[in-house]
Design a protein around this nucleic acid. Structure first.
Length: 368
DNA sequence: AAAGCGGGGAC
DNA sequence: GTCCCAGCTTT
């Protein structure tokens, strides 16, 4: 209540200051960025395709995690055309382990659209970029500003945190309305001269100095003008509504093995782990037993429970093993979540399209 | 507005 | 264990 009133007051005050304070802010932050920026691989290119690739991979994912995937993809698919022409199965395989697999499917679709509808050249403005699959307000602003020097703003988790502290603004940074509020702040402050560097500098500051738990204010180029620092509220900002806790769910996995192969089920293209391969999961033990009986598979006791937590589910997978020649596919009745069964080489070929969860299940069943 | 959608690093 | 990360899409 009182917090909201205070936030609005700050917002109004800062808008009146921004015309005067903007230039100083830009000088201080950009000078810091010029010296302190990390040498990330996508900072050595101006290719919109490469910039876009790095931004999609970076959605909800730490920069250090992204780097090896970025290198792999640029080597395998150096141009948007090579990506567009690749089988989506291969794209999912290179993406294996990075998570949020819908991003890979949309990456592929967008590459095909850019080739088919834009003759292989990315749209140069934020609005047109935002109409492509998997490109929302953040990614469109990032590509437009970094690759095309459009004075478009970006708001990610870092920018919310930096602005919330800089302006001592306790607007909820996770609610849609709060995000819109911070986008207005970002629009008002984006640099006309160096929009791409300005956006990256805000994010770099959030990632390396203005960190969530213990901000390193002594190293901050904006400490002298930071309102949360003078108010002593930096550690309590930004205000973020709690996320729902992952819900527990249990399944039984069946690993059917031959000497050099393993049976994997292909999930339908959309939804959880869409398009990936995995040992078939059954929603209850009786379902597993009945399926095994129909396929004339003798299954042993559970080898153990694989625990795997996603953003919205806390999974417990009781893992079982059976042996079959796999020269002919056993008639295993699986759930509607699967569209096909495959006998896959074991150990798995490099870049097989499986989740980290599937790798955990296979490791328990076949490497112990 | 809320939920679905991965995995891992930092504390 | 908790938090959250260079978010987007669907309901």
């Amino acid at each position: 209540m009182s917090g909201k009133t205070r936030a609005l007051t700050n917002a109004e005050k800062n808008q009146s200051e921004s015309a005067l304070g903007g230039a100083r802010l830009h000088r201080a932050l950009l000078a810091w960025f010029d010296v302190e920026k990390r040498p990330l691989p996508w900072r050595a290119t101006s290719d919109p395709y490469a910039i876009w690739m790095s931004e999609v991979m970076s959605q909800q994912t730490r920069v250090e995690t992204v780097i090896p995937y970025y290198e792999k993809f640029l080597t395998a698919y150096p141009t948007v055309r090579t990506l567009a022409e690749a089988p989506v199965e291969d794209v999912l395989g290179l993406w294996s382990g990075l998570g949020y697999y819908r991003r890979a499917r949309m990456l592929h679709r967008t590459a095909q659209e850019v080739v088919a509808r834009h003759d292989g050249a990315f749209p140069r403005d934020k609005a047109a970029l935002e109409s492509l699959p998997g490109i929302g307000p953040y990614t469109a602003g990032a590509v437009a500003s970094i690759a095309f020097q459009e004075p478009a703003s970006v708001v990610d988790g870092n920018v919310v945190r930096v602005f919330a502290r800089l302006f001592n603004d306790d607007t909820d940074g996770r609610a849609p309305a709060g995000l819109a509020h911070f986008r207005k702040r970002a629009d008002a402050l984006v640099s006309a001269d160096r929009p791409g560097d300005w956006n990256q500098a805000l994010m770099e500051l959030g990632a390396t100095v203005c960190t969530p738990r213990e901000p390193r204010c002594l190293l901050c180029p904006l400490a002298t003008v930071c309102e949360a620092r003078s108010a002593g509220t930096a550690r309590d900002l930004p205000r973020l509504t709690k996320k729902a806790k992952p819900v527990a769910a249990a399944f039984d996995a069946l690993v059917v093995a031959a000497p050099n192969r393993v049976l994997l089920a292909e999930r339908k293209a959309d939804g959880l782990f869409g398009g990936l391969l995995e040992p078939p999961l059954f929603d209850t033990a009786p379902t597993l037993l009945e399926a095994a009986q129909q396929a004339r598979l003798a299954i042993g006791d559970s080898l153990g429970i694989v625990q795997h937590t996603l953003s919205h589910r806390k999974l417990s997978i009781a893992t079982h093993r059976a042996v079959h020649v796999l020269d002919v596919m056993p008639p295993l009745p699986v759930s509607g979540a699967y569209v096909a069964l495959h006998a896959v080489e074991w150990p798995l070929p490099k870049d097989t399209r499986v989740s980290t969860l599937a790798r955990k299940i296979l490791a328990l069943a076949l490497e112990t």
